[in-house]
Design a protein around this nucleic acid. Structure first.
Length: 753
DNA sequence: TTAACTCGTCTTTTT
DNA sequence: GACGAGTTAA
């Protein structure tokens, strides 16, 4: 296996000048890149001159490991575009009007800020959804348009209300970011592109510094990324781009498939290497994938060949509904594990939209199959974690408006909506940060004494904490917890929600300790915050977790599994209805590529599934088989799971509709597993976030006795929802039934578990 | 100011 | 179905 093929060798040995590696799925692309890096170092290139850009942190980590195993002393910089830009921007922040301690907003922070800005401008958020505005802003930024050039380039017609709002909001949002000394994800790229365009000396320097650049997944680069790469490859055009136009699935995010198609024109003397030997999949899987992708018109045709076995046929499984589908997949996985001795981690289930994971998770849970999900509430998105991180952000960057708004009243200090809006207004007039405004609260008109005092107290708290901003992150975090009294009142609270929060906080401290230890001397608050905002869901997946992996088709790119299931291959889901509605045939082709990417993840066995009816978006609709299915030559199998034997209970469980009418005791996932749950979850459990351990229903199960401070003791008669959105219906002795948000209500379990 | 409740809107994929 | 915004009662 250590042998490289001729074309792989060719790519590895190429030294100077631009190189394009067109790599089909499973053609050993990562091997080529890692070997190439090692080779460059061997022939005398300094590791610091090499810049390798990957698509995900996970891919980066993997690459670092593989390069290290080839050549331990080589330590080139490997990371994502966003990370690279964040780091560069740290050093050259002033060039774009930022301070080096700027913060990076994630999607939810960004939306909050946008909302806040819109509220300030008196735009009714219900009529003009911030979501839509955010999307337009993002599109503008991906097109390298700042507010000014956007305004120049877009004639907003009389009827285009959203466009007119945009013309007002975009500049205001951008000013708010600037004043907060903050950037959103798009800005990271945009600012760096601007920096390189406007500062030719800096461009020259960096071009020289990174004289050997490798970019993975080049087909997914957008305009700012493309400009950055080009700017860094002028005097030293030793650019090695790898990618596959057939795997371009991020056009919706501004990726330009044209970038890879144009490579030869952009870099006239480029060498092109094609990797067409597939080492991953069976002949049958490749044949089907090829049949599918051949239907894309806007495509250079390409062959995929393999010496692997023919393999079993690719099956299309049809089920009556989504529950049966999930059930059938769970059973099939179990059967395959029992019959062929495969491990759980050899299986993956892909879906087009995250919403489809629910029924799958339930079925796997019923069958006691361990699984991990790449999605959902990531660790750094949990409330407690975000709160504490917001404190840290405010310490690192006192101008950070989003962070201020988030924690100014956490824990409750009597600073409510009204007070806050007055502070915001005053700060805007004075041109100060919110924190400065809080410190000078006595000058703000219309505030009552209590509010002034509370604001002073908060400003002082942050001020005191800031004295420690250079101590290790974990230490600082502990000070934050103590002095802010964030966990005050949690001490002798044994309820499960508090327990979970405590565990989250503990886990965050552990993460900080880990960061301090790993970074040693170079540890910094900014660095930790940067890490925490640039991790993604896929990054947290564990290859040898011994569990089945669930994820979206997008997240699946670059991965491989022995057995793959792709669910809901139905019209309006895959292809997605948005693509079907679109006039542009490119959108439909992207959906086809998405399925292609999913299919080519499979090494040995591939199943596509569909149903007759599907519960989706709250209603049951009849499902039409995806048009893509006819483009292949699949073996169709009807699966009608006869409710039989021990599974009868499960089948019965599926019928939720009766529960409204009679108080049937619902069967819950095995109670013994709940009882066995360790008091504290392991770090791995928490990082996986949605691992089976964390997914077990927390506390409140049907029949349980609970106490409410107001209504007294009652019995839980129903539980609904997930995670923070979980609700419980409680019946009190008076016969009265009430509905509670578990995360918000003061419900307490009575007695011992 | 806070918690419970009611109502209305949106609904893809992610760094 | 999920989630946010607004309303009401304390």
């Amino acid at each position: 296996m250590n042998e490289l093929t001729d074309s792989q060798q060719q790519a590895v040995d190429h030294k100077e000048g631009p190189l394009l590696v067109l790599a089909g799925p499973g053609s050993g692309k990562t091997r080529v890149i890692t070997h190439r890096i090692a080779r460059l170092v061997e022939v005398g290139v300094a590791p610091q001159q090499i810049l390798a850009i990957t698509f995900t942190n996970k891919a980066a980590r993997e690459m670092v490991e593989r390069v290290e195993s080839l050549l331990p002393q080589a330590k080139p910089w490997v990371g994502t575009f966003h990370r690279f830009c964040a780091r560069l921007l740290r050093r050259h922040a002033r060039g774009v009007g930022l301070e080096p301690n700027y913060t990076i907003l994630d999607t939810s922070d960004q939306r909050r800020l946008l909302k806040s800005v819109m509220a300030e401008l008196d735009h009714d958020a219900t009529h003009f959804p911030p979501q839509a505005i955010a999307a337009r802003i993002s599109r503008a930024k991906n097109g390298l348009q700042d507010p000014q050039s956007w305004a120049e380039n877009s004639r907003t017609g009389i009827g285009d209300f959203q466009g007119r709002i945009m013309a007002e909001v975009y500049p205001a949002y951008q000013r708010a970011l600037q004043r907060s000394n903050a950037v959103d994800f798009d800005d990271l790229l945009l600012h760096v592109a601007t920096l390189l365009r406007e500062n030719s000396e800096l461009r020259r320097q960096l071009d020289e510094q990174y004289s050997y650049i490798l970019v993975d997944e080049y087909q997914d680069t957008n305009l700012p990324q493309y400009n950055i790469i080009r700017a860094l490859s002028q005097d030293f055009p030793n650019l090695c781009a790898t990618g596959d136009p057939d795997q371009s699935i991020y056009a919706w995010r501004g990726a330009e498939i044209g970038n890879i198609l144009r490579f030869e024109q952009d870099f006239p003397d480029a060498e092109i290497v094609r990797l067409e030997d597939n080492f991953r999949s069976t002949k049958e899987i490749l044949r089907q994938a090829d049949l599918l992708i051949a239907h894309n018109v806007h495509r250079k045709s390409k062959v995929l060949v393999t010496n692997n076995d023919d393999g079993p046929p690719v099956e299309l499984l049809s089920f009556p509904d989504g529950v049966a589908e999930a059930e059938g997949i769970a059973r099939q996985i179990r059967t395959l594990v029992e019959e062929t001795g495969r491990g759980w981690s050899e299986f993956a289930i892909f879906y087009r939209v995250n919403a489809l994971s629910r029924s799958l998770e339930r079925a796997l849970q019923r069958h006691r199959i361990p699984f991990q999900v790449a999605a959902g509430v990531g660790f750094f998105e949990r409330t407690e974690v975000k709160d504490i991180v917001a404190y840290l952000r405010l310490i690192a960057n006192p101008a950070d408006r989003t962070a201020f708004e988030r924690v100014v009243n956490k824990p409750a200090r009597g600073i409510g909506k009204v007070t806050l809006s007055r502070v915001i207004k005053w700060a805007a007039e004075q041109g100060t940060s919110l924190l400065e405004a809080a410190a000078a609260a006595e000058n703000i008109p219309k505030l009552n004494k209590r509010a002034v005092k509370a604001l002073h107290g908060f400003a002082q708290l942050i001020n005191e904490l800031s004295q420690n901003s250079n101590s290790p992150v974990a230490e600082l975090m502990n000070k934050v917890l103590v002095q802010s009294r964030y966990t005050h009142g949690w001490e002798d609270d044994l309820s499960d929600q508090i327990e979970e929060r405590r565990a989250n906080v503990q886990e965050l401290i552990t993460a900080a300790e880990q960061y301090d230890a790993e970074q040693g001397q170079s540890a910094s608050l900014e660095g930790f915050l940067e890490d925490s905002s640039l991790v993604s869901d896929v990054d947290q997946l564990d290859d040898d977790s011994g569990s089945v992996t669930l994820m979206t088709l997008h997240a699946a790119k670059g991965l491989e599994y022995s057995v793959v299931f792709i669910v809901a291959v139905e019209e309006n889901i895959l292809p997605h209805e948005r693509a079907l509605q679109s006039e542009d045939s490119f959108d439909l082709e992207e959906e086809r590529r998405l399925l292609f990417v999913g299919m080519t993840r499979a090494k040995e066995q591939l199943y596509l599934t569909r149903t007759e009816r599907r519960n989706y978006r709250g209603r049951s609709q009849s499902a039409i088989p995806s048009g893509f299915l006819q483009e292949m030559d699949l073996t169709a199998i009807d699966v009608n799971p006869e409710p039989s034997g021990p599974d009868w209970d499960d089948a019965h469980d599926q019928d939720d509709s009766l529960d409204d009418f009679e108080p049937v005791i619902k069967r819950r996932p095995p109670l013994d597993e709940q009882a066995d749950r360790p008091q504290l979850m392991t770090a791995a459990d928490l990082l996986n976030g949605t691992s089976s351990a964390a997914k077990l229903p927390l506390g409140f199960s049907i029949g349980m006795q609970v106490r409410h401070p107001q209504y007294g003791v009652g019995t839980v008669v129903d539980v609904d929802g997930f995670g923070r959105r979980k609700t419980a219906t409680v019946e009190f002795p008076s016969g009265e039934r009430r509905h509670f948000d578990i995360a918000k209500s003061p419900l307490q379990p009575v007695g011992l578990r």
